[in-house]
Design a protein around this nucleic acid. Sequence first.
DNA 1: GAACTGACTCAGC
DNA 2: GGCTGAGCCAGTT
Length: 109
Amino acid sequence: MPENRDYFEDVYQVVRLVPPGRVTTYGAIARYLSLRAGARMVGWAMNGAHVHDVPAHRVVNRVGVLSGKHHFGSPTAMQELLEQEGVRVEEDRVQNFGQLFWDPVSELD
DNA sequence: GAACTGACTCAGC
DNA sequence: GGCTGAGCCAGTT
């Protein structure tokens, strides 16, 4: 539907809708916005996340790994942010991911 | 201007 | 059930 690349804004907006203490995935966002581009562009969009006040720490890859932690100020910043919200993180992976996973498609739609 | 790379995912083996 | 290859778009070399 959206031919423009303003979906960057949409991505940011969806991420902001993620409740504290919950996490979502790049693929889930891509599916919700019907991005033919796929999850990869969601990740690319997150490059400007810090500029848009987006809680990027709540976005992980499909298995719950903090694949984007290197883009935060420090290697542990992402994990600490999640733990502040009550999300248990171990070995760069979100524990109990299946239960904490927040899917915009089923939660918002 | 072609080739590479990246905060990913899925299908196939 | 873990590894490999292919596909997606955009920015960089």
